[in-house]
Design a protein around this nucleic acid. Structure first.
Lengths: 152, 152
DNA sequence: ATAACTGCAAACAATTTGCATCCTT
DNA sequence: AAGGATGCAAATTGTTTGCAGTTAT
């Protein structure tokens, strides 16, 4: 099951890359693999990714990680997220549909939870149409204080 | 009209600061003033702010600008926004209500437009309640390609 | 063979911080 | 007077880039 997912995506990746004259390298495959074996909803920063790679003794340079993350994001394979922090996070784009999950973030402890909302997505589609934008991604962030932090 | 708004906010600022043991300094007042005289919906980065200050020959150091922006944001006076860029933007929080305006951003030319959506805000309130979060701010970003960029 | 890709280290840009001095309270 | 605030410059952090050597096509 997981393997099937991976294979499909591997193929997709290959064609996506080839189409635009990019090459398929072990580094790029490895990094994609990591995102595929990640629990749904998890997102990684460049540094998170480096740590995982280090653990698996896959030595990919930080520069290549950054370049690959940017490349995969530009291909629409990864979604680039930024929370209130100082660095970006990336996660796999799973749905074709466009109904991506969104994040609710505790400003105090920094924890995030995910949710999806069809209403928000529908509102987004309508707003984009009105503004004559071709919608690519919808990112909703709710900032607040989680239950634990409210209780101090 | 504009003056009234300013006076109220000045007072609010004073009490907000005093309440928490912060001091009222000319720099802080000046920076708040700039945000008040900004057209609604405009947002400034630290560098934007520096440029405006320089124009008015108010010499406030960059460090103080950063410190003030962070402080005012933590007090809920400013809203901290981050687009896909590498630096943060700040804008005045005008409504008490919580129905803040949102942004639609062109990934190609970087231009942003604003909109408000009650549906999105209502969805946010509901989701936060379900997650038992105390909602502080709702930020929706729509990424897409604007009409001009679609036409190349 | 020929680009594209990688790794390294140096370069950058945005933001933060230590410290001496200054100014609200 | 006392402690927070400022300005300056140095330090950090996250990310990008130039370049020489490597590798996919």
């Amino acid at each position: 099951m997981q393997d099937v997912t991976k294979m499909v995506s591997r193929e997709e990746l290959s064609s996506l890359l080839r189409e635009r004259g990019f090459r398929i390298t072990p580094q790029r495959e490895k990094i994609l693999d990591i995102f595929f074996t990640l629990p749904e909803g998890e997102h990684l920063s460049a540094e998170n990714l480096q740590n995982i790679l280090r653990h698996e003794s896959s030595d990919i340079s930080l520069a290549t990680s950054y370049r690959t993350l940017k490349l995969l994001a530009s291909l629409g394979v990864l979604r680039e997220l930024d929370f209130a922090e100082d660095h970006k996070h990336y996660e796999l784009v799973r749905a074709e549909s466009g109904v991506q999950h969104q994040h609710i973030i505790c400003v105090e402890c920094g924890n995030t939870e995910e949710f999806t909302s069809i209403e928000v997505f529908e509102a987004a589609v309508e707003i984009a149409a009105k503004a004559k934008f071709e919608l690519i991604d919808t990112q909703l962030k709710l900032f607040g204080r989680c239950q634990r932090c409210q209780a101090q």
